[in-house]
Design a protein around this nucleic acid. Structure first.
Lengths: 227, 227
DNA sequence: TGTACATCAGTGAACGCGCGTTCACTGATGTAC
DNA sequence: TGTACATCAGTGAACGCGCGTTCACTGATGTAC
């Protein structure tokens, strides 16, 4: 029967990724070693090369996985709220992203932290990366369609106007510039807050992280949705 | 004359730090190697141990330097504006921090990016780390003293209230909770924006980074200072 | 002021480690006639 | 259906690399009498 070799191959590829994911979760991306992964899979180190052409290719697979995981978490959280409950959706998504980050700090650092030295992300990682942002953009699109989110005037350069136009034409039909900018601001605020907490900059300042995060995201949500 | 040995020692310590700083700037913290630094200083690798007890100690020195540098950049920028020009001060400080980050991306990543694997920051790094935040807190303190910044109501837990009280009692006398929270939000927004840009997440979305940053920080400033 | 001793900087070799990647190979699994 | 050949997975040894840290040592610089 054709395909049995292919199936075993697919299974082993998955197993290697699973072990690599565990190593990443435990020791971080910089410490991810092909040899160590091979040892844990029960292979000799050179055998990994039948499945991944290099360490970078394995890293790329993990990055795609991480983007997918956080994207899925955001989508699921978004789906738990009614479509017109924009504030609720925003908070749910924000909490979901933070929850995923706290549960998978090294994965979070891999995709949203400082770049891995010597690694350049290939084009394959672009699409999975956008998945999570599409969730938030959809909140904006829905809000604008329902007439609930108001635009406001912004002053900026022609280049930025063009960037926003470009962004709108690909994913955010009908969302005006002012709203788009607020969206991007909320977005960086979300990742800024999570990074600040996760990378230890609130240590000694805030003790009740959960409540503080909600407080911040509620404010950000009001900024995002209110005029 | 006593002290000549000490002076030479101090000079060499500085030289080692300078070379290490250059290596950090060029290759990042993870790639910082005692042996490579020693080579560039013109010493045998073991000689470094007369000056720094370990690689971690050298890293600590670089972290302190980086915090000091960004703190000083913020202070200088702050001093260029009139004391009562709160919005101007905020934008100047924000631009200064970003400017420093763009000029020294690896240093920025060292202190504000994902933690260096296997390195735990010692207590010595806490004081230099706060220097830059003190600049912004002073803007809030001045604004409150001048009666320009208004408080607003926040809903949160007792634990967060206590955290804010603690923060106020050490550095931000008379700044009410609502303003403190807005300050922290602006702060994470600033570092979130810089990290987002520096770590490549705006790539393909924004081309005019300077204008986009100003746009964001102007908004953040209004949120911070307006009620 | 001159000498005896202590302090310290820098040397060079070594320890022990782990890494990514290549390569010639064995043996099993699939494919074509 | 059975045989000959091609494909592929996995092996084991090796290459060449660089790292942090330790240690016994030499020789120069300071200090005390």
């Amino acid at each position: 029967m054709t395909g049995v070799r292919a199936r075993v191959r697919a299974e082993l590829t998955e197993e290697i990724k699973a072990v690599a994911r565990r190593h990443l979760a435990e020791h971080g991306a910089a410490a991810l070693s092909l040899r160590a992964v091979a040892r844990d899979v029960g292979m000799v180190s050179s055998a990994i090369y039948r499945y991944f052409a290099s360490r970078d290719e394995l890293l790329t697979a993990l990055i795609i996985e991480a983007f997918d995981a956080v994207g899925e978490a955001a989508e699921r959280a978004d789906a738990t709220r009614r479509r017109h409950d924009l504030a609720g959706r925003w908070l749910a998504v924000a909490r979901a992203v933070r929850g995923w980050a706290l549960a998978n700090p090294h994965q979070y650092a891999l995709v949203y932290g400082s770049p891995v030295p010597g690694y350049a992300a290939p084009a394959d990682t672009v699409d999975p990366a956008t998945r999570v942002s599409l969730v938030m953009i959809q909140i904006l699109v829905d809000g604008v369609a329902a007439g609930v989110i108001e635009d406001d005037r912004i002053e900026t350069t022609r280049a930025v106007r063009k960037d926003l136009e470009q962004l709108r034409s690909t994913v955010a039909t009908d969302v005006p510039d002012g709203v788009l900018v607020r969206g991007l601001l909320a977005w960086t605020e979300l990742f800024g807050s999570i990074s600040y907490e996760l990378f230890g900059h609130l240590h000694g300042i805030i003790t009740d992280y959960d409540a503080f995060f909600d407080l911040q995201m509620n404010r950000t949500g009001r900024l995002l949705l209110g005029a």
